[in-house]
Write a protein that binds this DNA or RNA. Sequence first.
DNA 1: TCAAAAGTGTTCTTATTACACCCATGG
DNA 2: CCATGGGTGTAATAAGAACACTTTTGA
Lengths: 248, 248
Amino acid sequence: MLTLDRFFKSAFTVDNVIFGFDEDDLKVLLIKRQEDPYKDKWALPGYFVKENETLDDAAVRVLEELTGIKDVYLEQVSTFGDLNRHPSGRVITVAFYSLIAVAEYNVLPSSIAAEAEWVPVKNVKELSFDHLNILTSCYQRLKRKVRIEPIGFELLPSKFTLTDLQHLYESILEVNLDKRNFRKKILSMNLLVDLNEVQEGVAHRPARLYKFDEKKYQEFLAKGLVFDLSEGKSKKSKFNKANGDLYA
Amino acid sequence: MLTLDRFFKSAFTVDNVIFGFDEDDLKVLLIKRQEDPYKDKWALPGYFVKENETLDDAAVRVLEELTGIKDVYLEQVSTFGDLNRHPSGRVITVAFYSLIAVAEYNVLPSSIAAEAEWVPVKNVKELSFDHLNILTSCYQRLKRKVRIEPIGFELLPSKFTLTDLQHLYESILEVNLDKRNFRKKILSMNLLVDLNEVQEGVAHRPARLYKFDEKKYQEFLAKGLVFDLSEGKSKKSKFNKANGDLYA
DNA sequence: TCAAAAGTGTTCTTATTACACCCATGG
DNA sequence: CCATGGGTGTAATAAGAACACTTTTGA
């Protein structure tokens, strides 16, 4: 039987890009590191994987230790194993991203001492280690995935307006969407339930509230349909308001 | 400074799903294992990552040792880290897939003693370790990616007919495509160069030969266009000939 | 009464689908 | 001369894009 002893072993970690949506902005939860390397610099939350822990377990643990939340959308994206990505030696890291309804949970780091902050993704210019690469990979994955699977709802409270949803897509995809076309499309998929409730206390005509219906989505899939939301798919994107370079 | 000694370290490997296209079938290169565990069983080619090797380097090495080929399309897909996926202990593996023009290279394992074989993907029912999961993940990734990026050409010889290309897509996507619509679409993207050559020695009207033009593709992208090849995107797939379950 | 965002349809354009016959070659 | 796969166009339908005004509320 094969013995593993003669092969190189490495420490490995998970890093978790925790996305939230707040004030019409896609944000990411960053922590200020408390120890070297990169002491006092901003980084993605992450930690070493334990001996009796799967990769997913480790990612869930990192999230829960930081925010107190579990049961969120979690997706593995990519593994980073360059030789010098960690100053202390070879460390391979598996990158995940999570989606959190910030408004729903009133998330913020209480359980841990680390300083942590929700930062608009588009404002992040520099991070410890290769974490900017990791963030970019995860953001690209999210951008693609949000168009073809109904995961965007994970970022909203369970009751939301169509305008909330539109702003979410605009923020993630970095495009402007046409209000009428967006509504027509999302409503025609028949995945939302009109709750017959309206916003309260807003200084304008109150919007109707909707929720996403998982059961309807299963029926939708069973019909062989494909979720697909977005304008300008195979055309020049006329409304690209992106700060292009980083996330092109 | 952080010392890594106190953290759990694991052996880790890369596994490479090497796809080829031959006789109108998408195939995968499998090896018969020569040592325990799973001696004499079929598996994906893979090996332990070395101390001074990046993950990509390791995947390239695995491919080259088996086939003698380098410089092929290679993509990291996912990392598998379940606790008991390897009988000898905890081994985390990073899965890659590669695309090879089988006809062009006349690939087959000479350099190594291991028995190896090109097997149609749809015939693979059982593999060592969790390799069937890995194959499935990589195949799904390929299926998605081949529709939105022009990577299918990596599986064809540099000169090919439009029917070759159509069969490639049909095989990967497990659909039937309409000949006229397929040709209209691919030619309208203006990514192919008509070589003004025809097949020789075929017992029917010889087909024209084309090649993919990388420069044209760059211009295509610069115009903001998106490669997108496939019928029945947001509709019920009427022509699904899939053996559904495994690769649904 | 004003400001602010909600809500709502139609027309035009473009992309997708369905579909059938003649052509060139080798055997 | 037959079998085999190559090559071609059009019409119908569906999806996407562009676009402006009225409504409801709180301040």
